[in-house]
């Protein structure tokens, strides 16, 4: 598995032309997702499969459609210094790994610090089986709030950067460009069959995240990829009619707001910020309610931000075609 990853990365260096590189990036994402499964990180694999193999190559493709797929050849003289630098740094890092605890040993420092506490007591304190979710949403809720805000800010930054001139700061889709290719009839029919299941699966991942692998981040990305697939096959104007860009932009803010408000609610109830034990008479029930609330916030925010980013790039592509 790891050898395949290295092979893909080497191919990425060797290949010229951005389209081939992007396809290899997608392969790379899928491979690393399967690697994460073998490392017991099922939640991470979920996210990586949706992001690394789906959304990120797609955004790269949209960019390449805007800036052109040609890649200039680099001259050999310029390669010597980077090669030297990389070799030296790599050698130093490999010397550094010799001090690492050997792979998979249960008494490594990473395994003995806080992890046993999470594994032994989260069952009683939080009351949900998926430890990843309880750490993410309850023990380290501050971190996650920060991450959600970073994602939100990134969405805003993309909107600002890609806003067409004179449109008041929002990269809205332009009026429809005529479709110059034959309609993708077969693709459209099949996607009509599959997209509802993708969205349903996203909801399952969202609300089942406490018991199995899943949660807001994964669900948000899966939901967004469903919508983006629809947009790819039916054109940007159609998907903009289904989910108007202003609605998505507001939803991104609403998602982050739900998260923050949950924290403020627990503050008002007399506990610490984001301490959900205050949300119900029984602390464990309170934790349940809190986790469901913030996972919902995360899911909405992530899905909305990724759809917004897609709209911004695709809208840019449309305006350029006119």
């Amino acid at each position: 598995m790891l050898c395949l990853l290295v092979a893909t990365a080497i191919a990425l260096i060797a290949v010229r032309g951005l389209l081939a590189s992007i396809m290899l990036t997608s392969v790379y994402g899928l491979l690393s997702a399967s690697f994460f499964v073998t490392m017991d990180a099922v939640d991470v694999a979920f996210t990586e499969a949706a992001v690394g193999a789906g959304v990120s190559p797609l955004l790269l493709l949209l960019t390449v459609a805007i800036v052109g797929r040609r890649e200039a050849a680099s001259n050999a003289r310029r390669l010597v210094v980077p090669l030297l630098l990389v070799t030296v740094t790599g050698a130093l890092l490999i010397i550094g790994t010799l001090d690492m605890p050997s792979f998979g040993s249960p008494d490594a420092p990473a395994q003995t610090h806080v992890a046993p506490r999470y594994l032994q007591q989260s069952g009683d304190e939080i009351g949900i089986p998926n430890v990843v979710t309880s750490v993410l949403a309850s023990y380290r809720a501050y971190d996650t709030l920060g991450e959600v805000l970073v994602i939100f800010t990134a969405g805003v930054a993309v909107l600002l950067a890609l806003a067409p001139a004179g449109q008041g700061g929002s990269a809205r889709a332009e009026p429809p460009a005529p479709e110059h290719l034959a309609p993708h009839t077969i693709l459209q029919v099949v996607s009509k069959l599959l997209i509802p299941f993708m969205l349903l699966f996203a909801f399952y991942v969202q609300f089942h995240g406490e018991y199995g692998p899943g949660g807001g981040f994964q669900a948000g990305v899966i939901f967004a990829s469903g919508i983006i697939l629809y947009g790819l096959l039916y054109g940007l104007p159609t998907v903009c009619r289904v989910i108007p860009p202003p609605v998505v932009e507001v939803l991104a803010a609403v998602g982050a707001l739900i998260y923050g408000l949950t924290g403020v609610l627990s503050l008002l109830a007399g506990k610490n910020f984001l301490d959900y034990s205050a949300l119900a008479a029984d602390p464990v029930t309170g934790q349940h309610i809190g986790i469901i609330a913030i996972e919902l916030g995360v899911g909405i925010a992530v899905a909305a931000v990724i759809i917004t980013i897609y709209y911004a790039f695709a809208g840019r592509l449309h305006t350029r075609e006119d």
Binding site: T47, V51, D143, F217, Q218, G220, V302
Partner: peptide
């Protein structure tokens, strides 16, 4: 998990 989504 969060880093992947922040990364994209």
């Amino acid at each position: 998990l969060t880093a992947i989504v922040v990364g994209i």
